[in-house]
């Protein structure tokens, strides 16, 4: 590690520290509010609003969420399954595609890039999309319908292409080609090994997208067995609210749920695993500049 000798850099480091500390605090404060809120009794939240420290500490929100443990365990299981399938397959096909459209010797690369980008601009809307999966492919109720539709996103393909062009110099590929290496070899032996930060970033985004998804579970599930975690939690709150709304029209008994604190506890329950897992990915893209030649 190199010592900082540059005196002129001192103001930079002071400003840097101040800004980072400020932003970090700003970003973390609400999260602390959420955690303490999830431990506060619902009544207290309703009466006094949120605060930084839990008051009238209680686990009622967590108890409500874990009221039926087998339900939430199943939801966790499904969430891991969707996240794994989506990220593994997604990362593979995204990288393959990005590699192709990054190749300058591929005649149709701009056509393909255009066709991919075009889908972000024009779309037929939700209903035809739903009919495609539910009626034409008959995937209603299947787990495939929950992870397949988000396998690739144009944004991640284009991001990956940027990473590839940025980290694999043309000269390297050219010399490999002269040595007789085909695309297969180049992709696996030359491109993938240096793509660490790119793969980590795209994989992270992909995994987060899957982890946080509730919409596809909502649309395609026909049984709570296939619900993702977010939908499981989301539906718990939604059904209480909806039943209360509904009771305006129909004589029904409304369920009781401490909605405010449960909402906050939900955020904790859903985010927890990600924050635990995050540091493992993180090392791929936070190895810094001043740290010198040692690369993670």
């Amino acid at each position: 590690m190199k010592k900082i000798k540059d005196r002129s850099a001192i103001p930079f480091h002071i400003i840097k520290s101040v800004l980072l500390i400020l932003l970090s605090v700003l970003c973390v404060l609400p999260f602390i509010v959420i955690i303490s809120g999830s431990l506060t009794s619902n009544m207290t939240i309703l009466k006094e609003g949120f605060s930084l420290f839990p008051r009238n500490t209680t686990l009622e929100a967590y108890r409500t969420i874990f009221r039926s443990p087998e339900g939430i365990i199943q939801a966790y299981r499904m969430n891991f399954y969707y996240t794994f399938m989506g990220t593994a397959f997604g990362l593979l096909v995204i990288t393959l595609t990005a590699y192709v459209i990054s190749r300058k010797d591929f005649k149709y690369r701009n056509h393909v890039a255009f066709l991919i980008y075009f889908t972000t601009i024009f779309g037929g809307g939700m209903i035809p999309w739903f009919l495609m999966y539910a009626n034409v492919l008959g995937l209603r109720g299947s787990t495939l319908a929950i992870w397949f539709p988000a396998l690739m996103s144009p944004f991640l393909v284009i991001l990956m292409r940027t990473f590839i062009t940025g980290s694999v110099p043309d000269a390297v590929v050219e010399s490999a080609t002269l040595d007789g290496a085909g695309h297969w070899i180049i992709f696996w032996r030359i491109v993938l090994p240096v793509l660490g930060p790119g793969l980590a970033t795209v994989g992270l985004f992909q995994a987060l997208g899957y982890w946080n998804d509730w919409y596809r579970s909502s649309m395609f599930s026909t049984s709570s067995e296939t619900w993702s975690l977010q939908f499981y939690l989301y539906d718990m709150v939604n059904s209480t609210m909806a039943m209360r709304q509904m009771a305006q029209n129909v004589s029904i008994n409304t369920a009781d749920l401490p909605t405010q604190s449960v909402k906050l506890a939900m955020a904790v329950v859903a985010t927890g695993p990600v924050l635990l897992f995050y540091p493992f990915v993180q090392r791929y893209f936070v190895s810094g500049i001043t740290i010198g030649a040692v690369k993670g």
């Binding site: 096909v93 393959l96 595609t97 037929g124 035809p128 999309w129």
Partner: peptide
């Protein structure tokens, strides 16, 4: 470059099903 076309097959299948066919909408 047939192998590049092969690389693109999943991409084509995906965008066809997920985006282009529903564009009828």
């Amino acid at each position: 470059n047939w192998i590049l076309f092969l690389f693109l097959v999943p991409c084509f299948v995906f965008f066809l099903i997920n985006n282009y066919l529903p564009m009828i909408g």
